[in-house]
Amino acid sequence: MIINHIQIADTFAEAFNMRGTRVIITAQNHKWAYHAANAMTGFATSVIGCGVEAGIERELLADETPDGRPGVSVLMFAMGSKVLMQQLETRMGQCILTCPTAAAFGGIEPSEELEIDQISLGKHLRFFGDGYQTSKLIDGKRYWRIPVMDGEFLTEETTGMVRAIGGGNFLILATSQAQALHAAETAIESMKQVPDVIMPFPGGVVRSGSKVGSKYPKMFASTNDAFCPTLKGVVNSELSPDIESVMEIVIDGLSFEAIVLAMRVGIQAICDLGPDSGVKRISAGNYGGKLGPHHFKLHEIMGIKS
């Protein structure tokens, strides 16, 4: 498949089951909401080393948040519910409780279509109040008010946890590093408009895609040599001679459809740059289809008319 002179490889991205949640963070203004959200989603690029993958989903206007203040929504994903719950509580305690004027609310509403488990948001954090914490049950939701030095920290008791998918991805193969990065940035700008997804790596882009296993016995993942341009002559490379740089965009989402939409929007944005962008091919990372249950086939995704 070729779109606007850019080749779309006949391959697929292989993704995994994860558990995901959304937290709404509000503050006195967007500046402090972002301070809280950036801290909460820091060091959360990959479950391999960080425990969770997290990112800011989007900015929220004051009339979109529960307490009528400016805010941001954060998505957080982990391979299992136990890790997600533990990471959420830790990050709530260290990043949201500590941030001036910040408040936290659950971001996944009850639904008949989704299987939703309620997990602790401020349920255990309340004990920081040392007995002075108070709860309020408002319209069926329990909130905790914890006295802190700037006034009161307000948090909802729980948020919803749903089944999610992590590891949707595509690779951008270009004739120079600068062109590959520019194409990736263009894709990310478009993909940020898609709800229910995050691109957890720095700036949404990862340059160190990995393969399973290593020559070193203790390493369970190592560099994806087939896509490393400096190894074209020594490994079974996937790269043609004119490719000098590859960037990867990884997508975690609350649903299969959300990841499909994000991939389509991102790839289309790159294709819209045309042949002068230096992008030659869009590919995707997989493990032969044997590890992850979700396969995002590039041709099917780009064949779907929006």
Partner: peptide, 13 residues
């Protein structure tokens, strides 16, 4: 005297 954030939720209800 204080500004209590939970009051916005209460008043909205």
């Amino acid at each position: 005297r204080h500004t209590l954030p939970f009051l916005s939720l209460l008043f909205k209800s």
